[in-house]
Amino acid sequence: MSRQPLRLAIIEAVSVLEEAGVPSPRVDAELLAAHLLGIERTRLGLVPLVDPAMVDAYRAMVAQRAKRIPLQYITGTSPMGEIDLAVGPGVFVPRPETELVLGWALAFLEGYGRHNPVVLDLCTGSGALALAIAHARPDAVVHAVELEPKALAWARSNAQTRAREGDTPIVLHQGDVTDRTLLTALEGTVDVVVANPPYIPEGAVLEPEVADHDPHSALFGGPDGLSVIRPMVSNIARWLRIGGAAAVEHDDTNGAQVAELFAQRRVFGDVTEHPDLAGRPRFVVARRVPTDIEAHRARSVRSTTAE
């Protein structure tokens, strides 16, 4: 059989995905084609003709996407920063919005100035934030916490892959980020905490890709979306060293509430709400500041040293 125009196959795929209600049919059709061909999406125009076997394989992938199976489950990967992570059933698919938390963390560490900073990623899922930070900051000591065994297995596999690629290994922990006894050895030692916890309010209507495939435990945070974040803030307070900071992603209905959870605690200052690229509230940042007792103790130490 003769080779066939790739452009026509993509046009057909867009039509199938549109009919299935996929939110971004053209983008997904092109990403699937690029994945199958092993090229960048921007280079599809350089491939005018493809073999019939490729078209058949492409149609099979498009049919999967038309069933609202997540694009990342079909391709097997999801990007975060400069790395790609393996994802599939049993683990939350990293979202582009979380790239903003990554960008904040790297910028904070750059200005922070501490060598070998300690970073803690809570609800790590696939290991996305932890591994992206470890890749960008090879001097960092990165810890990551995940509760669910299936997600932890994905994180462990991704960590092994990144280590083989030469990245600094991360330290994985299985645990509940709301547990007051979790990681007591890290108390007062962490420079940056990042978290993309379950934060969707129960009962929210979600796209099939999310509702039918992302793990329920990675999505929902109780009736108000704060059942994990609320106790997690207390843990963040004990993990952060003075001067360190945290960024917590949240539902776009909860920006003010999450900011208030930090502001209510005297150990946090510089509490700031950050929007996503669409202008919706997306994550809150807070810095660990000294309490009156800690400030007094520090002044006493400086005074004694001066004498």
Rank of each mutant, 00 (worst) to 15 (best):
P208T: 05
G225L: 09
T189Q: 13
P223E: 10
D212V: 00
L172F: 03
V205S: 13
E187M: 12
P169L: 02
P169C: 03
I229P: 08
I229Y: 06
P198K: 09
A195W: 10
G222Y: 01
L172S: 02
A185L: 14
L182P: 06
V190H: 04
T178Q: 10
R180S: 15
D212P: 02
P197T: 00
T184V: 15
A218Y: 03
D191W: 12
G203A: 08
H173V: 15
F220N: 10
A218F: 01
L219K: 10
A218S: 13
A204I: 02
T189L: 15
D212M: 04
P198M: 11
D224H: 03
G203E: 08
Q174D: 08
D191A: 09
V193W: 09
V190G: 01
L186Y: 03
P197L: 10
V228P: 01
E202P: 09
P208D: 14
P223S: 13
V210G: 11
A211D: 15
D212Q: 14
L186A: 05
V190W: 10
A211Y: 12
I229D: 11
L219N: 05
P169A: 07
D176P: 05
D214V: 02
Q174S: 13
T189S: 13
S217H: 09
L183F: 08
V177N: 05
E209Y: 07
P201I: 08
G225K: 01
D212C: 08
D176S: 07
G188W: 12
